[in-house]
Nucleic acid binder design. Structure first.
Lengths: 206, 206
DNA sequence: TGTGTACATGAATGGCCGTTCTCCTGAGCC
DNA sequence: GGCTCAGGAGAACGGCCATTCATGTACACA
């Protein structure tokens, strides 16, 4: 049951070909990097003409910004829902947040890689906006860590950087995970949830 | 005592300007990415002429390969020495390995970023070589984890991916650490060594 | 003194890139 | 029918890029 067809990141936007173009751009930027991929590549991938791209996005850089906004939004949505559905104690909340994050990384490996590697190519204004959105997601994790530290369930002497460490490990999954490898999506999420709790010196199941 | 002048990654190679060129290339690739940086940028950074670069390296791609070989070599050397100088038990060995790795990331942030983000732009042969070198460094960590698991000191039920998780967290430091921030190099290394031991569910000091 | 070799340079060359321009089509609406 | 407007296409333009070429200097060494 491992062979899910790779769900596109962007589904529907109201404009006829926008989603197709965004997904093609994601693929192109993921394969060759922002500077390595040309607008011609994106057009080819989207099955449209080079000039038509400019009917949707005013520049290559704004196209990247749009792709990253969709990726970030989807991640933020998944993590937020997971935390909302979890219990009130920090360990369960952290567990569900990590599981959701790992799920996103596995479902959208390319988007994760592009989001971490290509942000720097945005113009300053877009970069600032995107970084602040990313920081908001990170803050979700930091608040949970703070809560657990305050409650005394996370005993690490270094709670300040723990969220960053956890998120770094999770994001790195995107650079080695293979869908046809030995680990299922669920097993991987389970493992990393435990890694996170252990790193925080929190309560471990079993 | 935090303001160390950034030691260049490459020090001396026997050819007159090779080190200068390699360090300039590292800087250029780090700032703009492999495809975003031009050979003209590298030449300017090295204070030499565009065409002279080709007296040292046959192509831009081989130049990147040389940069990455130096970065990887330095990391591997530091980790190997640290492990050699450590005790024989897995926890001390892991602790020293992590401390050395964090030290490298802090001392050579740009090299770490380039090494993780730009490997994919090498031609296949160089990429294969570089990846196998990187895997060798990773294997050092994996062996320590295996040793600790066999000895019963690392109790994590998932020792198989733990090294990857730790290395992912450590590499991510390069994308947020600031020399003038609140954490010294040594404190950071200490923190991450503890994170690593905790993640493995190993013995914790104090 | 002559010869090879390492290092260095400025000027091409051919190609691709982002972007723009001009034009075309078809659907919705008066 | 006539108008608008979103969506679409091909051809061009100016610019930058990796690489090569022709040429020059200076030093080692026979």
């Amino acid at each position: 049951m491992n062979g899910r067809s790779p769900e596109p990141l962007v589904r529907n936007t109201g404009r006829r070909n926008e989603a197709t173009i965004l997904n093609a751009a994601l693929q192109a930027f993921g394969t060759s990097g922002f500077n390595g991929a040309s607008m011609r590549d994106v057009a080819k991938g989207a099955g449209t003409s080079l000039s038509n791209l400019y009917n949707y996005f005013p520049s290559k850089s704004k196209l990247l910004a749009a792709v990253l906004r969709h990726a970030n939004g989807e991640l933020q949505r998944r993590v937020a829902h997971a935390v909302d559905d979890a219990g009130n104690d920090a360990p369960s909340r952290l567990r569900e947040a990590v599981r959701a994050h790992v799920g996103f990384v596995v479902d959208h490996q390319v988007a994760t890689l592009v989001a971490t590697n290509e942000v720097r190519y945005l113009d300053p204004a877009d970069r600032t906006e995107l970084v602040s959105h990313r920081d908001a997601t990170q803050a979700t994790f930091e608040h949970i860590v703070d809560q657990g530290a305050a409650d005394g369930v996370f005993c690490t002497p270094y709670p300040g950087d723990a969220a960053r460490a956890i998120l770094g490990a999770v994001a790195a999954i995107a650079s080695w995970y293979r869908q046809d490898g030995p680990l299922s999506r669920g097993q991987l999420a389970e493992q990393y949830a435990r890694y996170a709790l252990a790193l925080l010196e929190g309560p471990l199941p079993r």
